[in-house]
Every structure is written in structure tokens, then in C-alpha cells.
Amino acid sequence: MGPILIIDDSDTDRFLIKKALLSEQTALELIELEEGFEAVKIIKERKPMATLLDIRMPGVDGFDVLRMIRRDPETSNHLVLMLSGSEEPSDMTLAREAGANGFLTKPATFGEYGGLAKAISKKVFGAS
């Protein structure tokens, strides 16, 4: 089982996703990035199974990172799930247009993080 790359500028959000994913898949390896400049390089080097990509980040935002990933022939088919702190319909549309494989909203309670981890596992590993 390959690693999962998490790109999010918020330490807290990375911590919460990590916590939820590890309680779902204890043996999971996670790579963390605070910003997306190096995303393509890391994906090529570490070959993660998927990338969880936050939309709102200072400087290069999630959409820019996704475009960089899609432009490079080596990473163009890489599985990318976008994460947003809000349920903005425009974010969902933009994510789809930019070529995201999925759009997930960061939950408001930790209880819901369990569901998010399950949804991610299903998309990445095909297991429920």
C-alpha cells in the first residue's frame, strides 16, 4: 500500500485528517506538505496512491497545484481529491473543471471525520 500525500497549509487540518485516516487504516504512510510548489516533484519521487489537496492556501492555491499535476505527463493521471473548508458550490464546480477526481468538505465535527476517512479510503483503495 503506497503512501497518501496531504497538502494543506493548516497544521490543525493535517493533524485531524491524519488522525482520522490512521484510525481507519493504521498502517497507512502519510506524506505532509504545507504548500504545493513541490507537489509534482514529490509525487514523482514518492509515488503516493493519492493526494489530498486543500483548495484555499496562501500563494499557490489548490487549483494551481492541481493544474501543475495535470500538466505533467508523468503525474497527469494521479488521483487527486480536493478538500475545502466550505461547501461553496463554486469551489465544487472549479474543482471538477480543474480535473479533480473528487471533492470533499472538511467536517465540522470529529465524528464526521470518520465518514471522511472512509470516503477517502474507498476512493483510494476501493475498500469501504
Binding site: S10, T12, D13, L16, R56, G85, S86, K106, P107, A108, T109, F110, Y113
Partner: peptide
């Protein structure tokens, strides 16, 4: 976006 994120964190 920016107000909801810290709120979410406090709550969680």
C-alpha cells in the same frame, strides 16, 4: 473560509 476554519477547529 477564514472565519469558519478556526471555528471548526475550536469545535472539533
Amino acid at each position: 473560509h477564514d472565519l469558519q476554519a478556526p471555528l471548526r477547529h475550536i469545535s472539533i
